[in-house]
Amino acid sequence: MRILRWAVAATACLAIGAATAETVYKCEAGGRTIYQQTPCAKGQRQQTIRLQDAAPAVDRPAPAGVPPPATEEAPPTAPPGPSAPPPTLFGCIRATDGKPYTSDNGNPEPYMAPFGVLGAVSQPLADTYGNRGSAVASAPELNRGKGNVAGIATSNYVWVQDQCRQLSPAEACAALRDESEANQRSIRNAFKSERGPLEAKDARLQKQLQGCR
């Protein structure tokens, strides 16, 4: 019985090593049985046993009706949103004094201005202020309550309109940056009660500057 148990254990050990040894020798001598990987000694009864190679492991299919395990997928990347368009601004020249300014309106409304401030007429002071019915009066006459004050307010006005041209994107961005810096300085120097309109203007300028980045 002990020999039989030893033989079973030897067979199990050889089966574990079957991947590397294909031939096993069964040796019998003196009532004992020995299993070994080398041929039996001379005088022993030998029996050759061929062992099969271990079968390669295969993936077993999932049972029917069982869904395959879910694989975690990366969330889809949202496409980048459209960039803000460059600002559209116009560089304008004030008709009354020739000073430049920027505006988002390239066709400003006409307005009335005193004809004298336009510099279109040049005449001697005597002709301008010399008679009582003239449209304007000298400063001393105004101080004494004399002169045609109503004529100053209602006469010699003409319609004028500022001239504008569209700025290039680079010019518009430069103008907006300058205006934004000046407005932020005003916010820093203003009282808290005065910052409301300035902060609203800053928000509008920052929105326009998004197209400049």
Rank of each mutant, 00 (worst) to 15 (best):
V136F: 07
S155I: 09
A84H: 09
S138A: 14
N105M: 03
S122M: 08
P80R: 12
Q161R: 14
P110F: 11
S103M: 08
G91F: 03
K99I: 11
P82G: 14
A126N: 09
T102K: 02
G106Y: 11
G147T: 05
P82F: 11
K146I: 03
V136W: 00
Y157C: 01
T128P: 00
G151S: 04
S168E: 09
T102N: 12
A139G: 03
N143S: 14
P86C: 03
V117H: 00
G119V: 00
G98F: 10
G151L: 03
P79Q: 11
G130N: 05
V117Q: 11
L142Q: 10
V117A: 02
P80V: 13
T88N: 13
P87G: 02
S83L: 15
A135I: 04
E109N: 13
Y129W: 08
F90M: 08
N107A: 15
P100D: 07
D97H: 04
S83F: 10
L125K: 13
G130A: 05
L118A: 00
D162R: 05
V158R: 13
N131Q: 11
G116Y: 11
A113R: 02
I152P: 00
S168W: 06
A95E: 01
P169K: 13
Q163I: 13
S138R: 11
S155D: 13
G91W: 04
G151N: 02
P108W: 09
L89E: 07
V160A: 02
Y101T: 06
P85I: 06
P79I: 08
A135P: 01
G119K: 01
P110C: 10
A150F: 14
V136R: 14
K146S: 05
P108A: 05
Y129I: 04
A78D: 05
A150D: 15
A150S: 14
G133A: 11
P140S: 11
A135L: 08
L89K: 08
W159L: 12
A135D: 12
A84Y: 04
S83W: 04
F115K: 14
D97Q: 04
V149A: 14
A139I: 13
A137K: 09
Q123G: 07
L167P: 02
Y157D: 00
F115Y: 10
P86N: 09
L125C: 01
A150I: 15
P124C: 10
S155P: 00
N131H: 08
T96G: 08
A120F: 09
Y129Q: 01
G145K: 02
G119H: 03
A113Y: 01
A139D: 07
A120H: 06
P87C: 04
